[in-house]
Write a protein that binds this DNA or RNA. Structure first.
Length: 505
RNA sequence: GGCCCCGUCGUCUAGUGGCCUAGGACUCUGGCUUCUCAAGCCAGCUACGCGGGUUCGAAUCCCGUCGGGGCUACCA
């Protein structure tokens, strides 16, 4: 009977657009399984989820899928929250903030899953399966060899009394398996259109482990329904798990109009066209944070991976993103992650920062790199130096290299640069500069520039790039530095003259 | 192997039958500017995977093909 009832379960979800045709308030969830630091792909998903929720004025729900307690740790859960906060992806319901449909950690919802599982068993939608992993493995191998679709063969759909007694006496613990009826499932993916899965290729799947713990397939479906989620935007790796999820809705007795709308986001790939992973690029958001990438730059860049506003604009703020984001404009094809473009956008965002804001953001890097300790006097110097390096850096971490010459206790010219100031011509320049600057009373960069230009360019007849290069190295230690005259002013008269003198043979 | 998804410059993308001799951005190359490095400005290179069809006309529609990816767990 039950089988019959499910024999024709084709259905279709109403096509959805971002204006949310249904009158239900939009509820979008980001539900990662933190088995490590959140990575670029997770964040791109989170960003789209968040942007969609904000765009529609709906709720953004943050749920932790920690049914696999072997791989998910408390540190990773904590790190995931920190990362989202750092990026500015604030959630309306979830860990810390709570909400009406909590708890939001699946490990705290075990009794809920247990209840539904029991119901499914009673209803006959699910059944106990006593097959051991070894047996399943063996049968899978056989299926593969026989070239038939692999998957559970339904052996335990009906078990004889005798077999049941035998399994129990052996102490076997059954898993709970969902009965997949004949037929097919079709759903409308907002990004991909109609997608159909023939149930011949969707085998009966496990809902509850032998030890009684729930699996993703059960928890995710139950939670999305119980939390009244209206839109599921997630990675395309979950596309083929959708018919299973829908099967659980059916067992739960949910009416079709209450199913969430699915949208499967394309992957973020690494350089080598494989899914982005540790092997082919940096994936951990924490890594980008340490490297001096701005959260708004990361979000801006990631927003452009698989989505575009439609016109030629590429620089969008978080606010603009929430205004412009629609699921219709999300691509269906995967995108490759390009560090170079991220860096370019990061540089642009740095240049947009007000000096006080830039100061606030760079100080932790300078302290971490032991360039400064953070005294008010140091901060003053950094602040006055930032305007001249702001357009020269692509990441915040670069400020240390740029400004350390202003703070080092014991200054030394970089070893490889030394020969460049020891030649005859450089020595002439340095001696002349020493003489001129010692006589200079006004130590402002314009005055310094004027004096040096007159002495070195006009009187000695040198090309500017030649003349100033030696001086640059002598004073900053490197042939790459912030503008020379401003650097001299910032360094101060005393230390500048000291360094020039020290560079003279 | 089976099922499913995907296919425009090197990369991200615009493009939904004529506005496309395919636009923008990043990268790269050359130039300008310049005290180095950047930034900025200008210029250049490079793409509709392939083959059929439909049509007066196709990057856009259809079919096939090739290629890439995902899933195929008591992971998510």
């Amino acid at each position: 009977m039950r089988e019959l009832a499910h024999s024709l379960i084709r259905y279709r979800l109403v096509p959805t657009n971002t204006t949310n045709t249904s009158n239900k308030p939009v509820r979008v969830r980001f539900a990662p399984s933190p088995t490590g630091d959140l990575h670029v792909g997770n964040i791109r998903t989170a960003l789209f989820d968040w942007a969609y929720a904000r765009h529609t004025g709906g709720q953004f729900i943050f749920r932790i899928e920690d049914t696999d307690r072997e791989r998910v740790t408390d540190e990773y859960i904590k790190a995931a929250q920190d990362t989202l906060k750092w990026l500015g992806l604030d959630w309306d319901e979830g860990p810390e903030v709570g909400g009406p449909y909590g708890p939001y950690l699946q490990s705290q919802r075990l009794d809920i899953y247990e209840e539904w599982a029991a119901k499914f068993l009673v209803q006959g939608d699910a059944y106990h399966c006593y097959c051991s992993s070894e047996e399943l493995e063996a049968r899978r191998e056989a299926q593969k060899a026989a070239n038939v679709a692999p998957g559970y063969d339904g052996k335990c759909r009906s078990i004889s009394e005798g077999d049941l007694a035998k399994y129990k006496s052996e102490g076997r613990l059954p898993v709970l398996r969902m009965r997949m009826p004949d037929g097919s499932t079709t759903f409308t993916d907002s990004i991909r259109g109609d997608v159909t899965f023939d149930h011949n290729f969707v085998p009966d799947f496990v809902l509850v482990r032998g030890d009684g713990s729930p699996l993703y397939t059960l928890a995710v479906a139950v939670d999305d329904i119980m939390m009244k989620v209206t839109h599921v935007l997630r990675g395309e790796d979950l596309l083929s798990s959708t018919p299973r999820q829908i099967r659980v809705y059916q067992a739960m007795g949910v009416v079709e109009s209450d199913y969430p709308t699915f949208a499967h986001l394309p992957f973020v790939m690494g350089q080598d066209n494989a899914k982005l992973s540790k092997r082919n690029g940096e994936v951990s958001i924490a890594w980008y944070r340490e490297r001096g990438f701005l959260p708004e730059a990361i979000c801006n860049y990631l927003a452009l991976l698989g989505w575009s506003p439609g016109d030629d604009r590429e620089n969008v703020t978080m606010k603009e993103l929430t205004e412009l984001f629609t699921v219709e404009r999300v691509h269906s094809s995967p995108a490759r992650f390009d560090m170079k473009k991220l860096e370019a956008i990061n540089g642009d965002k740095i240049r947009e920062l007000a000096i006080d804001e830039l100061l606030k953001r760079t100080v932790p890097f300078l302290i971490k790199d032991s360039v400064i300790t953070g005294t008010p006097a140091e901060l003053e110097v950094v602040k006055s130096a930032l305007p001249i390096i702001q357009e020269r850096i692509a990441t915040l971490a670069e400020v240390s290299q740029m400004l350390k010459f202003l703070f080092v206790a014991k200054f030394e010219v970089e070893a490889e640069e030394l020969p460049k100031i020891k030649d005859e011509q450089s020595q002439i320049v340095l001696k002349k500069a020493d003489e001129i600057l010692n006589a200079l009373s006004n130590w402002e960069h314009e005055a310094i520039h004027e004096a040096l230009k007159k002495a070195l360019i006009e009187e000695l007849g040198l090309k500017p790039r030649i003349a100033f290069s030696a001086l640059r190295i002598a004073v900053t230690g490197s042939h790459i530095s912030p503008p020379l005259f401003e650097s001299l002013e910032l360094l101060g008269r005393e230390r500048s003259l000291e360094r020039i003198a020290a560079s003279i043979n």
